[in-house]
């Protein structure tokens, strides 16, 4: 069960949003319920504190109050870390990136075009539902990198391999569509990662077995599913 919360200071617009949500939930027969729609962010926060379920939050950014949507979202994240936050706004100039990185906002609904906004809200709900079911049904193993207060999680199934960097304190994670260079050591990685999945194939590489496409024993090169390659040493070849 997902709880839906709406915080919007304009009553007319709030009504429209609520209507769309009702329709979508009914039509798609999703296990969701609209719990609260309000203009007051503090009221919403109180509700979040007592809520037991994961929530979907539709927040206006400019709330005509000393707490704006961004601050509200940050507070919500504290109480409901796995929630889905969607911003409703007329501020098209506030780019989506900041929200995404700061509070991991899921999406962004522009209210200047009501027809488009309806479609967008529907998409958001479906998307959140999809992600929610994925999370609950199939428990993904993830590797988490921490920097400051930010945590970056990468699914095991996306990781190709880890590589040492020329900086001895740093390791490079090669994933399917991303590459992250972070503070860490291979030794720690070997300890934390599941060794049924990861194998040390070379002094400077730690490969994910499940994403290997091909092994060239002659040239001692491992090919991964997206075409990236890493080396392996004869001594450690047995492990694969």
């Amino acid at each position: 069960m997902l709880y839906i919360f709406v915080c919007e200071d304009n009553a007319v617009q709030r009504k429209a949003v609520v209507q769309t949500i009702h329709n979508t939930v009914l039509m798609e027969e999703m296990d969701m319920r609209l719990v609260l729609d309000t203009a007051n962010p503090y009221e919403l926060l109180e509700a979040v504190k007592t809520s037991q379920n994961t929530g979907i939050y539709f927040l206006d950014i400019d709330l005509k109050c000393d707490m704006n949507g961004m601050k509200l979202a940050q507070q919500i994240r504290k109480y409901d870390p796995r929630c889905f936050i969607i911003f409703i706004t007329a501020h098209s100039e506030l780019s989506y990136m900041t929200f995404q990185y700061r509070v991991e906002a899921m999406d962004f609904v522009l209210k200047d075009n009501p027809a488009e906004a309806k479609v967008k809200i529907r998409e958001c709900l479906l998307h959140a539902w999809e992600r929610h079911t994925l999370q609950t049904n199939k428990v993904h193993k993830t590797y988490t990198i921490e920097i400051g207060e930010r945590k970056i999680s990468v699914d095991y199934q996306d990781i190709l391999f880890f590589e040492t960097s020329s900086n001895i304190h740093k390791v490079v994670l090669h994933a399917k569509d991303r590459q992250i260079e972070f503070y860490g050591t291979m030794k720690d990685l070997e300890h934390t990662l599941d060794d049924r999945c990861f194998v040390r194939c070379h002094r400077s590489f730690l490969a994910n077995r499940n994403n290997i496409k091909e092994v060239d024993t002659k040239e001692r090169v491992i090919y991964f599913v997206n075409g990236e390659t890493c080396l392996m040493s004869t001594r450690m070849m047995k492990g694969i």
Binding site: I152, N167, K170, D177, R178, Q179, I180, E181, Y183
Partner: peptide
């Protein structure tokens, strides 16, 4: 790489 305090992520 000459800094220890930088995390670098490249995404496509």
């Amino acid at each position: 790489r000459s800094y220890d305090n930088i995390l670098w992520e490249t995404t496509k």
